[in-house]
Design a protein around this nucleic acid. Structure first.
Lengths: 165, 165
DNA sequence: GCATGAAATTTCATGCTTGAAATTATTGGA
DNA sequence: TCCAATAATTTCAAGCATGAAATTTCATGC
């Protein structure tokens, strides 16, 4: 397996084009992300990681275990610990013990958290809709299809990629 | 200007599609980025921010001032201070005083830094080429064009976006 | 000359992120 | 039973990232 990426070195202009695409992809994504982070901060005094946690929990009324949450967000366990800690201080999430397993904790949205998230989610959707306003639906669709293919590439960090998106 | 993003709320399915695209874009980008970070760490014991700084400096033999560097990378001044500090400890960059302005510092690659970066850049290009291996050149080209349009959207954080990419 | 405002940079507090180590609890054999 | 492996989580140190405040230097008008 080692050195396998050099196999494509025989097509230098293709590699160059893909590199160009990657750099543009990264740049565009970071630009949009920075915009969203800034608005979350300025208009709602919150952050993207907190929003992500709320979004994940919003889909599960019963709540999620810490490990399920970190798996859903694809971040480390330790990371989620801190974010949930801060959300709990704000009263947006609740940590309830799991019946019959003293190790685990279930995290779920409080009423306040649910209300808060629905406001944030609306704003977020509006921002994204506006940022991508000039993108023709056909381009949008095309890009979604291409990205699906990229996401399912087997070259990414061993196996990966369930069918959920 | 306020509430302008709600103007598109009249096309809910378009907003939904754009939101879908954004989530996929973010997911795919993060996946590729995570792969690159992991390999930089495991195979070269370095990080993406360090790589980015080296890459920026590589294009300027004369070096860049700290402020030029942070502008080029679109990150804060304070951020660059720390990264350059660590690169200097590794002997990869040099900080030289600017003739006639005791406030400013010029940062440039050392010989070691230049050699190091050319190795890293090759590996990086190989990884990206391999990850996007299955992407047909036509899709690649199409996507580059679409992303250019997105990047030039006026809705992104006030003005923005020089012609460089 | 000299004060005052602007410019270049660093420092700082806060938060996010990781991977590794530590902690506590559960489980399944010997 | 009990003990070793596993599982769920937290803690920790390091680094990255930000925006705000502080520092030093420069430039300009008076």
């Amino acid at each position: 397996m080692s050195g396998e990426e050099l196999a494509t070195a025989g097509h230098p202009q293709m590699v160059r084009q893909r590199l160009r695409l990657w750099l543009k992809l990264l740049k565009a994504t970071k630009l949009v992300e920075a915009t969203i982070r800034e608005r979350l901060r300025e208009e709602y005094d919150t952050t993207l990681p907190r929003f992500d946690v709320l979004a994940a929990l919003y889909r599960f009324d019963e709540g999620l275990k810490m490990s399920e949450l970190s798996a859903a967000l694809r971040v480390s366990n330790g990371n989620v610990t801190g974010i949930v800690e801060r959300l709990a201080l704000d009263g947006l999430v609740l940590r309830v013990p799991v019946e019959g397993d003293k190790r685990a904790t279930l995290v779920r949205l409080s009423k306040k958290g649910r209300d808060r998230f629905s406001v944030l989610a609306d704003a977020h959707a509006g921002w994204v809709g506006a940022i991508l306003e000039d993108l023709p639906p056909s381009d949008c669709e095309r890009m979604i299809a291409i990205l699906d293919a990229v996401g399912h590439s087997p070259k990414l960090t061993g196996k990966v990629s369930k069918e959920n998106d």
